[in-house]
Design a binder for these strands. Structure first.
Lengths: 376, 376
DNA sequence: CTACGTTATTTCCACTATAGAAATAACACA
DNA sequence: TGTGTTATTTCTATAGTGGAAATAACGTAG
């Protein structure tokens, strides 16, 4: 791992070029020229300094045999920089070390010693040491479930009891590297967009299924955010007027129908015992009537949510991510059936992409926003 | 009206500047510089030729008294060009003549003599004569309810029985001016975005209420369109499981609950007589139980649709347009109440903008896409 | 084994768009 | 009438751009 010292921040067209190579993997100069609308000459001029400083490298030429001089695609030197991604939950700090494409290296989980900002900061610092320390780290991203402003300020994070905490400032003081704080769903969406299963797709929505239900949106190749982002509006979408209640009193909303705790709690009522999520899905597959009912209505709800999203957000691709995507794998036909029912038969079928990386997707998202910040 | 002959099409930064002035009305050079990221010197250089050719003019200085040299805002010469907008329905051609900001001049309605492309083209040509002929017309926009490709090709227009008709080509041959064909809802959305009630707003959705229910979306200052645009996906959003059926068999979808024909048909069942839309709204206000039921559930459905749109499309502004917006004016409290119920109490209230121009909004939309095409 | 065709990439160079600085313009107010 | 203040234009050096030609790196045909 070479530590490339970036003398000055990327700017203008050079930044665009680096971003394009970062996202679209090994890519020839001619293809880059087409995408960015630049001439070959300009491409050479712009890529030269980036090659010199080690950010870009000549990729091994592809095996495609054709006439003429072989192409020499450009690629980013993924190991030239390290990033750290941290996902905060109510009880734990989950940290990962990644390369320039948010590929995971070391991971660690640390119990939160408390909810005081100073305690959380200390825990995060400990976690960064666990995943390899700050050596060669370009930036660190931290995500929370809640509203975040200006990439550093936690406006509101109910699960920590925070309101107006300058987490970015505190961490920057403690670590001395650039810190990016972001909402967890926004960050996960960004990771899918640049590095994940939706890489290169310009319009899509993300649904996360886990402790809650999250909703993220990318339109025109840019994430959609507004002042309500972080409130989880897409997570309480009404889906089933006969469903159970969520913690905020919505009957049959997406969280009530789809979140892991809600599903297992529903199952517990009928089964009269505790079940885990995977066990619940297994039971449903095995024909247990209670489990089949809970899982089946969750699947149908997910289908309806997918259709509603495709219709109103005008996307044709939906990414499913989080710990609870097992539902999608096990119940895909039912989901598709419910989705089709709420969609015009002449419309193209919604493309459903499932990110099966589970909980690590959250920390990867945190790293992704740190990476993005250094290319913006 | 001076006919400015545009020697060559606008290009690059000059086009951006003209577009900015067109949309943001009289605007000072300094404000333009801020918005476009250009220096005052560049502003002068770019605006010079546009002033010379008559597209831009120095606006009368505003009355704001302040220190220093008064600003001399730039504005477009709205009368320097004419455009024609045509909205096709199953039975009529509705045509308007507009200026550069899609302000209406002459209007006319002509009965369609038939659904054959040649007949429709002939009727459109007659309509253009009615609204003043082709003198000084820069471009003409035509909209249909259906799917349109490449701004000229009608892929699918069920109300005319068309599939794959090169309406743009036929009209261009007949009229000799640039022709833009577009989906009616997309065009109406574009008109609200550039010239209408949502002028300058970067993220909003449009709901049209009329013979059907239409749905348009603008995100990141750009319309959202995809291959399904024109199918009316937002127009059949499920809202009330106990509602009536729409023509496509959806129970309680937005068209079934909100469209004018569906509402009056529902009322007819209970009232045992025909009622007009306005009369129905009047009856509801007067306390008639049948009308109150139909109108009340329509209002609640609209509220739910507004909330769903705001949550999933992540917009905070919703524009209501079309002939049926009387519902919004009469029943606003009920709409807002239903909308709030499906939205997080901590979220900002959805801003609802009502375009009361009624049916003419459709033809204005057609003109708007013609105008936009000459600035793209 | 060499010359040639083909395509990718780089080098060279003229040109254009840009912004900074200075100049000028247009007011209010003293 | 002069001065302060802000808006706009003019002048000019410069950075960024793309076209054309040169060079590079192959495969292939002779």
């Amino acid at each position: 791992m070479t530590t490339a010292h970036r003398s000055d921040a990327l700017t203008g067209p050079a930044r665009d070029l680096a971003r394009e190579v970062l996202i679209h993997g090994p890519i020839t100069r001619s293809e880059l020229g087409r995408r960015l609308g630049l001439s070959p000459a300009t491409l050479t001029r712009l890529s030269k300094p980036l090659l010199d400083e080690g950010l870009l490298v000549d990729a091994p030429e592809t095996i495609e045999r054709s006439i003429g001089r072989p192409v020499r695609p450009l690629d980013v030197s993924v190991d030239s920089q390290r990033f750290i991604g941290v996902k905060l939950t109510a009880g734990e700090v989950f940290a990962v070390s990644t390369d320039l494409r948010a590929n995971l290296g070391a991971e660690c989980v640390i119990e939160l010693s408390g909810h005081e900002p100073s305690q959380v900061v200390a825990d995060i610092v400990r976690a960064t040491v666990e995943v390899g320390g700050m050596g060669g780290v370009t930036a660190i991203g931290v995500t929370v479930g809640g509203q975040v402003g200006r990439s550093r300020w936690v406006e509101r994070a109910p699960f920590l009891g925070w309101k107006g905490v300058d987490l970015g400032g505190l961490l920057h003081d403690a670590l001395g590297v650039p810190v990016v704080v972001e909402n967890d769903v926004v960050a996960l969406t960004a990771a899918e967009h640049w590095f994940g299963i939706a890489k290169g797709i310009e319009d899509f929505a993300v649904l996360t299924i886990g402790a809650g239900v999250g909703y993220g949106l990318v339109i025109h190749d840019r994430p959609v955010v507004n002042s309500d982002t972080g409130l989880g509006l897409g997570g309480h979408f009404p889906l089933d007027p006969t469903g159970p209640l969520c913690a905020e009193g919505h009957r049959g909303c997406s969280t009530a129908m789809l979140s892991i705790p809600s599903m297992t709690a529903s199952a517990r009522v009928g089964l009269a015992r505790d079940v885990g999520y995977t066990e619940l899905l297994d039971l449903a597959d095995a024909g247990d009537p209670v489990a089949a009912q809970v899982v089946g209505s969750a699947a149908r709800s997910l289908g309806r949510l997918i259709a509603a999203t495709a219709n109103l957000a005008m996307v044709q691709t939906i990414v499913l991510s989080g710990e609870g995507v097992g539902l999608a794998d096990r119940q895909l036909p039912r989901i598709l059936e419910a989705s089709r029912a709420d969609r015009d038969p002449d419309a193209v079928p919604v493309r459903i992409l499932v990110d099966r990386s589970g909980f690590t997707a959250w920390a990867r998202g945190a790293a992704a926003v740190a990476i993005q910040a250094s290319f913006a």
